[in-house]
Amino acid sequence: MIEISHVNKWYGPTFQVLKDCTTSIAKGEVVVVCGPSGSGKSTLIKCVNALEPFQEGQIVLDGIKVNDPKTDLPKLRARVGMVFQHFELFPHLRIIDNLCLAQEKVLGRSHAEAMAKGEKLLKRVGLTVHANKYPAELSGGQQQRVAIARALAMDPIAMLFDEPTSALDPEMISEVLDVMVDLAREGMTMMVVTHEMGFARKVAHRVIFMDTGEIVEDAQKDDFFGSPRSERAQQFLSKILSH
């Protein structure tokens, strides 16, 4: 589904943020990407739907090369859902309109169709009563659930999560993770940048560990948590799992 091969990316002439990153995510697979701040994990996930350009290598999404100038990027992006750290709901639109906008403008669905889909998804994330509110009137956890619903409204073939719980109060993290766990159990293809190792343990198939722009470890979940091969991953795990 997602093939990342030998991706190199530089900011400016000298600062390399991604170093020869290669991995792939199969249909229905849930892959967690973790690593310290500045390790390039957010940059890598943004390269997948070409929100960030990269200079070398290639990424193929469902058979379509992302970094091909001939690719219709808006069309391709519409098929991949993305959830951001800071939710990024559109503040001037009501919750339900946040869910309808791209359905209507990008997929060309009728307003009635989009509304029906939006209402169904709001029900699924338990926010039906807030349909007519504005994003700023919701808590962070609620906003992030709306953001997930907004992405799902496009019937994506895969979902990308860029630190979806990092900006949330501890109390709100679980309500967002619950939605994500459900999604994973339904067989959604997911690439998740997160530090939530509990989530990784529960639903991930594979864990990728990144450091200084490199994929240091790319292992099955049990292997990763059981006995990470690299010293760097061992250090990282011991630090975040010791509490």
Binding site: A78, Q85, M154
Partner: peptide
């Protein structure tokens, strides 16, 4: 505006 707004719109497939 936060840079993420443009990204979110772009990620949804808007031109």
């Amino acid at each position: 505006l936060p840079r993420g707004q443009k990204m979110a719109a772009t990620a949804l497939g808007l031109t």
